Amino acid sequence: MSDRRLLLVHAHPDDESIQSGLTMAKYVAEGAQVTLVNCTLGEHGEVLVPELAHLAAEHEDRLGPQRLTELTDAMAHLGVTDFRRLGGDGAYRDSGMVWDENGNAAAMDEIDPRAFWRADLLEAANHLVAIIREVRPQVLVTYDEFGNYGHPDHIQAHRVSTYAAALAAVESHRRDLGPAWDVPKIYWTAESASRLREGAAMMAEAGQEMPFQFDLENLPPMFSEDEDLSTAVSSTPEHVQAKLDAMRAHATQITPDGEFFAMGMDLAAITWGTEYYRLAKGRRGPVGESGFEDDLFAGLR
């Protein structure tokens, strides 16, 4: 078992590459054990490849296996060999989402009974308890209580991760799932509001428009002000490239000429070259020149 073990819990294939791809590539390269858990196969994702449109939920409803193939390709780019689905493939289905009147993601009016949003919290948490006790991670990464931007599956992933981490530490809880393990550090994914504003200014100077339309003075909750952030993980150009390649591997969700890469490769590398986190549990480690921790494992005894 590696001396450093990182467990990440994400809702759908592609979430992990967008929000944590750099982090995973960095720690794999450094010899840490990296385990990824996706809670669904993203069956309700939008299909951006015309020749695969027939796989969509509203047509043949066969998108899940395709997204698993894309996830496998993405993990090969990042070097991650231990990636799992919560409860096994198809145990929980993508809940889908709509945009509410405030511009945030929300649950659809009609949800499949198998949807992750409807999952029994204890049942889902116990699936993760078993993984936590097996892997024994020093660091767990998941979403904040708002799921970054309100997607119901992101919110549920936060709830399941939080409950599972608490249950896994209780010696008398479900001894059949393995010896108790108390995860020392828990982080929530986040984005830097100041970095977004700086990027917008850079694009304006270059005569380019922001690919995503944000009100820079009224950003969604996922964009934390810098004083709310605790850790900034950045890495080498090779790891940034691995992240960008992993994002492209999710071909049904992210197009090479789409919004994620609309700013050009140079600026994309800057934009995606640092991943930010908020410390939700544990002892904060030493602060580097950036003003943040620069290592998720910092401060562990």
Rank of each mutant, 00 (worst) to 15 (best):
G147A: 04
N126T: 14
L71A: 15
D120I: 02
H151D: 06
G96I: 02
Y143M: 11
N38Q: 06
R84L: 15
H127Q: 12
I131F: 02
L48S: 09
N38D: 15
L52W: 11
G96E: 03
L71P: 02
D94W: 08
E60V: 00
D153K: 07
L52C: 07
G42D: 01
V139D: 04
H154G: 10
H127Y: 15
L121M: 12
T35W: 02
D61S: 14
Q33E: 15
N148P: 06
A76Q: 14
A53V: 01
V98F: 10
T142R: 04
L68M: 15
G79Y: 05
L140A: 05
G88I: 04
N148L: 09
C39W: 01
D73N: 14
E101Y: 04
G64N: 07
A76F: 08
I132Y: 00
D144I: 06
E145Q: 12
D73P: 01
D82W: 08
T35G: 00
V34Y: 00
V129E: 07
R84V: 09
R136D: 06
E46C: 00
L122K: 11
Y143L: 05
L48F: 00
L55S: 01
M97C: 09
T69V: 10
P137S: 08
L41Q: 12
V37I: 13
P137V: 01
T81P: 02
L52R: 13
R133F: 07
T142Q: 05
L121T: 07
D153M: 03
L121Q: 15
G42V: 03
P137M: 04
N102A: 15
A56S: 13
T81F: 09
Y92E: 04
V129M: 04
A53D: 11
R118V: 00
S95D: 08
H54W: 12
H154Q: 11
D89L: 09
E101V: 13
L122V: 10
I155V: 15
H151F: 04
H154N: 13
T142C: 09
D109S: 14
F146M: 11
G147F: 02
A119H: 09
H77G: 03
T35Q: 01
V80F: 04
M108E: 12
R114Y: 09
N148M: 11
F116Y: 13
V49Y: 08
A119M: 03
V141D: 03
V139I: 12
G79A: 08
D61P: 03
D82H: 06
D153E: 10
A105V: 06
A56P: 00
E58F: 10
W117V: 15
P152R: 02
T142L: 04
I155P: 00
D89K: 08
W99D: 11
N102V: 04
Q33D: 07
T142Y: 11
E134T: 12
T72Y: 01
R67H: 02
G64V: 06
N102R: 12
L122R: 11
L48K: 14
D144F: 10
G150W: 08
L36Q: 03
N148V: 12
D112T: 05
W117H: 15
V98K: 10
G90K: 11
E134K: 07
H59Y: 09
G150F: 10
